[in-house]
């Protein structure tokens, strides 16, 4: 149970401080949201996602995290700009606070490439994050068994990633990401189905919606595929390029599963396409 406010004033890539990648990015992620980020290629979608996942920590901005979970109910603010701090104590304090709320280990991340560790079996891949967190074996067994059933892949648990299809690998990657944080369940996905053929991609989109509903996930989904964004999302953010800023935010109120041939679906798709083409 949470809300995340992203307030990025600016972000530049290391060693390229003259080139702003993100500017004035402000958006909110609600609990159980399905938010897609679209925009022209190279506009900074992935950069934004990586900030959210906790990989790029030196950006001038804030991630505000409202947690209603059992462990904390206060509104925590994480400043990610320690440079502006003048007092040593407050800097240390902020860094400590920031660390305790680091997205790493809390936000599931699904990259574009197939990312299952090739030397581990399917089951060991799902266990990876649980082992890192020293979760007792018995608890791990429960989680792994539940997730394998969720995606209907119990019989593949002893297979190596190279022995299953790309679509199956992405499903297991989602399971692995869900496994680490069953309470918040925030997952960020960076064009996860782009390497798949269209038939598999469509099937996986339906599977993802199914998992999203069953697990009460919150998903931030980066894609360049407008059809995909229209099919999946509750909300879509359109980014401009050089530097990226939010130009539109579109709420899609169509019920799932969506009919790609319906007039309403196509109207939204055309609307999004026109926004992206303007950028």
């Amino acid at each position: 149970m949470f809300t995340i406010d992203i307030k990025s004033k600016s972000f530049s890539r290391p060693n390229h401080s003259e080139n702003l990648v993100l500017k004035n990015i402000l958006f909110k992620i609600e609990d159980q949201d399905f938010l897609s980020i679209i925009g022209p290629s190279g506009c900074g979608k992935t950069t934004l996602l990586r900030i959210l996942a906790g990989f790029d920590q030196k950006f001038d901005g804030k991630i505000l995290y409202l947690s209603n979970s059992s462990e904390s109910s206060e509104y925590n603010q994480y400043s990610l700009n320690p440079n502006k701090s003048t007092q040593k104590n407050s800097l240390e304090n902020r860094q400590r606070q920031y660390k305790s709320l680091n997205s790493l280990g809390k936000v599931g991340y699904i990259p574009q490439e197939f990312s299952l560790f090739p030397w581990l079996t399917i089951e060991q891949n799902i266990r990876f994050g649980l082992n890192i967190k020293n979760i007792p074996k018995k608890e791990q067994d429960v989680v792994v068994s539940r997730l394998l059933d969720l995606v209907g892949m119990r019989e593949y648990k002893d297979y190596l990633p190279k022995e299953i299809s790309g679509g199956m690998q992405q499903k297991i990657a989602i399971c692995r990401a869900i496994a680490i944080n069953p309470t918040s369940n925030l997952i960020v996905m960076d064009e996860p189905f782009s390497a798949l053929d269209s038939q598999t991609r469509n099937a996986l989109q339906r599977d993802l919606l199914d998992i999203w509903k069953k697990q009460n996930l919150t998903i931030v989904f980066v894609t360049h595929n407008i059809d995909e964004a229209t099919f999946l999302s509750k909300r879509v953010i359109v980014l401009s390029s050089n530097p990226a800023s939010i130009t539109r935010e579109v709420r899609i109120d169509l019920a799932h599963p969506r009919d790609r041939t319906s007039l309403a679906f196509n109207n939204i798709r055309k609307e999004l396409l026109s926004y992206v083409q303007k950028e």
């Binding site: 996942a53 990989f55 790493l104 280990g105 991340y109 990259p111 990312s115 560790f117 890192i132």
Partner: peptide, 14 residues
């Protein structure tokens, strides 16, 4: 070594 694997491991809390 593939940076993607390292990123995923970091995202899983390593």
């Amino acid at each position: 070594s593939n940076v993607v694997y390292q990123d995923v491991a970091r995202s899983l809390g390593a």
